[in-house]
Amino acid sequence: MRVPAATTVPERLSFAEADTRVDGVLSASFEGAYDTVLFFDGHVTLDGNFLPAVAAMHRGMPTNDRRWPPVKPVGRAYRPTGIDLIVVTGDLTVAGDIELDESRPGLYVAGTTRAETLVGGDAEIYIGDGAFTYLVYGYYNHGILETGTVATPWVINSGHDLRVKAPDAYHIDNHGDDADSDFSRSNIGAAFVSPVVDAEDATIIVSAFLERLRAGLPVLRPDVTAAAPSHRGDLPA
């Protein structure tokens, strides 16, 4: 795979080296202990989902190039291994999803992040401002997802340390009954169409929810759309 012209070629650095390059931001932000950093000093533009795209870049480089980590298969895609963090000092633009489900790699982006979705599981993620077409979703209680101000229609939290500033989004507490959320387990069943609801647990089935968003189908019942909270503006379809 050819590296896109807008993407800087990364370096493989120690955490201490990378932290020095960004004036100590990494050590001030990340709570875990990390060793190896894939460091992009500039803007990054990737085709396809984030981790497979990074791994595909590796497959196009010489096998003895130490800047590139090994890859391991994950289903039909690939992810880089041997890397604790991915750091981008510029903007990150992904024509697909950013999903970091395992504890490594984590992600830091200094500039603006754009993708279809941003999903955090066990990893630490720290980004600045951003825009996400469909949703931001955090799950699993060991991970952290922190953002600047982001534009997205939906923010879903399933027991995650979710620190997302999305003033125009609708917020779903998919784990409990957070009073600051627009929807929680107390009203999810009544508010959303049945294909996206686990009726037994009164929770959103996030995969089905996202599938309907991608297809342009409504996720809310029509009567709920009509009763959109005025402080939020129009509900997304």
Rank of each mutant, 00 (worst) to 15 (best):
G176E: 09
V164L: 07
A110M: 07
T117A: 10
L92Q: 01
D173S: 15
H171G: 05
I156W: 01
D91H: 06
R79A: 14
A131Q: 12
H175Y: 09
Y140Q: 11
M61K: 07
G75W: 10
Y108V: 14
E99V: 15
P62I: 12
K72S: 14
G189N: 12
G143W: 00
A131V: 11
D122M: 10
M61W: 12
V155W: 01
L92Y: 04
H175W: 13
D177P: 02
P167I: 03
Y108W: 12
V150N: 04
R104P: 00
S181G: 15
N141W: 09
W154F: 12
R185M: 13
W154H: 04
D91P: 05
H171W: 14
R185H: 12
T147F: 05
G60W: 06
I83P: 03
K72E: 07
T133I: 10
G121S: 11
P105L: 09
D129N: 15
G120F: 00
V74Y: 05
S184K: 03
R114M: 08
A169T: 07
L118E: 00
G176D: 15
M61L: 05
V164N: 02
P153E: 14
D182S: 11
V71E: 05
R76A: 12
D129M: 03
S184P: 07
L92D: 02
T89Y: 02
D173Y: 10
D91Q: 13
D180W: 14
D198P: 04
S181R: 06
D65L: 14
D161R: 14
T133C: 05
V164I: 09
D180P: 01
N64F: 14
I127D: 01
G60F: 04
Y108E: 13
P195H: 13
H171K: 15
E124S: 10
V88E: 01
E99A: 10
Y137S: 03
F132V: 06
Y170T: 03
Y134T: 06
I188H: 13
R76T: 07
N64E: 15
A110W: 04
T112L: 06
I86R: 00
D129Q: 13
D173K: 07
D178N: 13
T117H: 00
G106A: 12
T152R: 15
S103M: 10
H142D: 11
P62N: 11
Y137N: 03
T81H: 02
I144R: 07
V150G: 03
N64K: 08
H171S: 06
P69W: 05
L92K: 02
A115V: 06
V94R: 00
T81A: 14
V88P: 00
G130K: 03
P80R: 13
T147P: 11
I144H: 04
V155H: 02
N157Q: 09
D129K: 05
P105F: 14
V74I: 15
L107M: 13
T149S: 14
